[in-house]
Design a protein around this nucleic acid. Structure first.
Length: 522
DNA sequence: AAAAAAC
């Protein structure tokens, strides 16, 4: 068996200028799909490429396009994507290769004026979603003059929901336009359509048999009513740096965000329900690392590249094997570490296992971690944090300094951590058969007497109640059940808590970063 | 049956 030498970009046929710009961004070694696609793409003709999620497909088509535009072989390429955010991401990448103004982004949800101006200026890359592209094409603002049409996530673009608009674009471009199809998945029915749609395409198939098995995958069988609680427990236990939670419907996004936030974890949602501006803001917050948990529909399932996602969760069964593959492919990208967890009910188990098999993946069943395991993990983490923040001096304030002299600092710290994170309540038995338990959404306010507390501080930027709940849970023996409605404002917030919790919170004299927090009854 | 995608 011979091993081919590891290629570099110049040896694939890319010009020096382009390779230099790549090297400046520390991109020097092509990924396997780039090494396979680039030489074929430089020759011309139709192209069909299938490779794993996170394996570098975007650059595999952008680089040869950029090279051929640089060389004057072609003047324009269109790239069509299934979501607006993906189109924007691809356009950013194109801009990084050919300069900031190289791409016009034609997507809905935003005024068309600037997009039309970009087109008048004349851009080598037109990146967009089908609706707005057809719109501008019909109005005469977009000229059907592309030499190459790229379908990113091609199996979805050629599926029912997009097919019609796509055919419209292709019709106007004419039969001579080259067609390039890229995706990690090509399910059999779509494959037939694509074979008919492409003319003697050059084909690249990589790692197809391995599916997305490079992502460690587990699933947990949990009662439907307890799914939100189970997810929150996993989030607390696994303590992900950044995680992406997938749900089926737009409505589920809101429910899951509220349930997670009520458990003291900051989370926000993204779905087609949001205004485009809000969608982009949430995604930007997630990208920048300011938002630890993003909950989304399948709008976030394909193509989105956010480095540093350590965990993907599926809350309930995904729509199909392709959805599963693309969702879990948001983690463990470009050689990074990451794992996927799927929470399903007992009745969904068989369908899930069939789906995973169709996706050519391997999953292991995992029991739901016990509350005791969760408490142990949190105590350990808090212990580390306390030791870290106190440093070598262990400069504890009174009365702990005296206690340390008497018992030793480690014992005092252990006792403190133990007090801050109380023992877990006993595990609830199997759910009652009748009457049916109330739906696990939000809190039950009925019959509960709340005390209103005025907090002399607030959280803005749409962060929601998560940080406040987290702060209270962390700093006192108050659980999420003790906390009712929370109204956040940038200057001060009002929270409702149970009477015993109110007493604890006021007595605790909480502080944040060394500054006492102003908390009084309202 | 859901989500995405144009006003």
């Amino acid at each position: 068996m011979t091993t081919a030498p590891t290629p570099d970009f110049p040896s694939l046929g890319l010009d020096d200028g382009l390779c230099g710009r790549l090297a400046k961004r520390d991109i020097v070694t092509p990924t396997p799909v780039q090494a396979a696609v680039i030489p074929l793409a430089l020759e011309g003709g139709d192209l069909l490429a299938q490779a794993r999620t996170g394996s570098g497909k975007t650059l595999a088509f952008l680089l040869p396009l950029a090279a051929r535009i640089d060389a004057g072989q072609i003047s324009r390429a269109w790239i069509v994507c299934p979501t607006r955010e993906l189109a924007q991401q691809v356009a950013r990448e194109a801009g990084a290769l050919l300069g900031a103004g190289a791409a016009a982004v034609l997507v809905g949800g935003t005024p068309p004026g600037p997009q039309i101006r970009d087109l008048r200026r004349g851009v080598p890359f037109v990146v967009g979603t089908p609706g707005r592209m057809c719109d501008l094409l019909g109005q005469g603002h977009l000229q059907p003059d592309a030499d190459i049409l790229v379908l990113d996530e091609a199996d979805q673009m050629l599926d029912l929901g997009f097919r019609e608009e796509l055919e419209h674009l292709v019709h106007d471009l004419g039969p001579e336009v080259a067609r390039w199809c890229f995706s990690a998945t090509f399910p059999p029915p779509v494959r037939t359509a694509i074979n008919a749609w492409l003319e003697q395409p050059r084909r690249v198939h990589l790692d197809v048999d391995a599916g997305s098995s490079h992502v460690p995958q587990r699933y947990v069988v949990v009662d439907r009513q307890q799914a939100h609680g189970a997810l929150a427990r996993l989030l607390h236990l696994l303590d992900p740096a950044r995680s992406l939670v997938f749900v089926r419907t737009r409505e589920d996004v809101e429910l899951a965000v509220r349930a997670i936030a009520a458990d003291g974890i900051e989370a926000a949602g993204i779905s087609g329900d949001l205004a485009q501006e809000a969608r982009e803001r949430v995604l930007a917050r997630f990208r920048s690392g300011h938002l630890p948990v993003l909950v989304g529909t399948d709008v976030a399932a394909r193509g989105i590249d956010v480095p540093g996602i350590t965990h993907v969760f599926n809350l309930g069964l995904p729509m199909g094997a392709e959805a599963y593959t693309h969702r879990i492919g948001r983690t463990a990208r470009a050689g990074a570490e990451g794992e996927a967890w799927t929470l399903i009910s007992r009745g969904e188990r068989t369908r899930f296992l069939r789906m995973v098999e169709r996706a050519r993946c391997r999953v292991d069943e995992s029991p739901l971690p016990t509350a005791a395991a969760l408490v142990a993990a949190r105590r350990q983490r808090l212990g580390h944090r306390v030791v870290e923040s106190l440093g070598e001096g262990l400069d504890l304030p009174a009365p702990f300094d005296a206690l340390c002299d008497e018992h030793g600092a480690p014992a005092v710290l252990a006792a403190l951590v133990h007090r801050l994170i109380p023992d877990a309540p006993p595990e609830p038995k199997a759910p009652r058969k009748s009457p049916p338990p109330p739906r696990a959404k939000g809190r039950q306010d009925r019959g509960q007497q709340w005390v209103r507390l005025r907090l002399g501080f607030g959280f803005h930027d749409g962060a929601g109640p998560g940080p406040i709940v987290a702060l209270l849970c962390r700093c006192s023996q108050v659980s999420a059940q003790d906390i009712g409605r929370i109204r956040c404002a940038s200057r001060h917030s009002i929270i409702e808590v149970s009477p015993p919790a109110a007493a604890i919170i006021i007595r605790a004299r909480l502080s944040y970063r060394g500054r006492p927090l102003d908390i009084r009854s309202a």
